[in-house]
Amino acid sequence: MAEAKTLLTVIITTSVTPTAPSTELISTALESFRSFCPDLLTCNVIVVLDGYDEIQANPRLKKGRVTPEQAKSYGIYKTNVKELIINQYGKHETHTDFSQSVGEAEFGGLRAGPNTVQFTTSVNLDKTISFIEPSKRIGFGLAVRTALRMTDTPYVWVHQHDWVLSAEIPLGALLDVMQASSSEPERPVKYVCLPSPRNLSYDTCAEVVEFPTLKTLTSSLKSEFSPQLYPDVKIALTPLFHWFDKPHIASKAHYMERVFPSRLSMLRGDFIEDKIGHFCRNQSKDGQWSKWATWLFSPGEGQTPCVTHLHGRVWVGKEAEDKKIAEWRSKGLANAPKPAPKPEPAYDTGIFQSDSEE
């Protein structure tokens, strides 16, 4: 029986956050691995510590602009993250002896210049732990592509630092289903997204049932798969007509072919779901879903969320968040600030709010 660690590499992306130099955000994510999918802590791991562009008085983290204090804190944060990852994933001395090299992340066309960002890689002797540090901000999309190019396993788990697992993930069984699907061209499984609260009852939501092609595909393909190596486990999957950035498992080869076919496919700062999500959606409506082969894990009849978003750009740590909630409650729930309503993704136009931007 092939173990997850021989099939899958964990890719974690992180960047400047208000809580730096504390690693509480990413530590919370790793602790959720331990609670709900401990196999992830046995796999190879690649951590991308994205850079920033400018130091100025008014921060705009989304645009790569940080204050002098944030820049200082982020340098300490990167050191702290490396120590955290080594402590979590390191098993023996070869995990702590690293060699360095440099590379370039290219993007866009060549007319306006070379369009590259230099990065440094640090890889331990047995290549089980890798760190990628761009000299400037490259964004989530290019961070994933850079990590994929260093990946030796056929599958990857992609995880942004501000998502945490909230339900058990049968990783081995999911990988078994994905491997077995290679012999079933009518229902390939090359990407499996984990559901957040916004994805519950996806198979019956308006974005599916109001489109005949998508409704028919869902009716014919939604299934409980039976992994050969895990006969006591049932894997409920429903077709997903989008490519989300939230935690997911995917075939490396499929990722490179479908999302990163050339340097033109992703610009610096792009999120993948913003850039190509609408292509997946529109081509699925045209009957080309199989070229994307995207699925949503749907345990509990589609009613069990498996991941939660901590909103890293505004999250100030669990203690501070708990204190803020307690203050609201002490004044009465009616006085608590109400978040702005979250619009549903406008799939038809390709303009939508990504989970990364929430």
Rank of each mutant, 00 (worst) to 15 (best):
F260P: 07
P197R: 12
S201F: 12
F241Q: 05
W243N: 04
E273W: 05
Q288C: 11
R268A: 00
E257A: 10
I276L: 10
S226N: 11
D232V: 04
H248W: 03
V233T: 15
S181Q: 09
V259F: 04
K190F: 01
T238H: 00
W289D: 02
L175F: 06
D286F: 05
Y191C: 07
D274T: 11
M266R: 07
R187G: 07
I276T: 07
S265W: 02
N282C: 09
K285Y: 04
L267D: 13
F241C: 07
I272D: 05
R258K: 14
D286S: 13
A173I: 02
D274S: 14
S219G: 08
S181W: 06
S196V: 07
P188Q: 08
G287D: 07
Q288Y: 14
E273D: 15
H242G: 12
K285L: 12
E273Q: 03
S226I: 10
W289C: 05
A236P: 15
R187S: 13
Q288F: 13
F260Q: 04
V208L: 01
S181H: 08
F211A: 08
H242R: 12
H254N: 09
G269N: 10
L267C: 10
V189A: 04
F211I: 15
V189D: 01
D270G: 00
R258V: 12
A180K: 14
T204Y: 01
E224L: 06
F260K: 01
G287C: 07
E207V: 13
P195R: 03
G172P: 13
V208E: 03
W243E: 04
K275W: 01
T204S: 13
V192K: 03
A236I: 02
F241W: 03
S223I: 05
K285C: 11
L221W: 06
L217C: 10
F279H: 15
V192E: 02
T218W: 00
E257N: 11
W292H: 10
D245I: 07
S251D: 06
H248V: 09
L174C: 10
G287I: 07
P197I: 11
S284N: 04
K285Q: 12
C193Q: 15
L237W: 04
L200P: 14
E186M: 08
T213Q: 14
Q283M: 13
E210G: 02
T294D: 03
T213E: 15
Y202C: 00
Y255L: 15
P185E: 02
S262D: 12
T213Y: 00
T216E: 14
P261K: 00
C280M: 12
D203K: 09
L200I: 09
L217P: 00
F279P: 00
Y230H: 11
D270F: 07
K190D: 05
K291R: 13
F211W: 11
F279Y: 14
V177G: 05
L240S: 08
P247C: 06
L175K: 05
S220W: 03
A236T: 13
T238E: 04
A236C: 11
V189Y: 02
I272F: 08
F260G: 05
R198I: 09
I235P: 01
L200A: 06
T218Q: 01
G287M: 02
D274W: 00
R263N: 13
N199D: 14
K190Q: 11
V233Y: 01
A250M: 10
N282A: 12
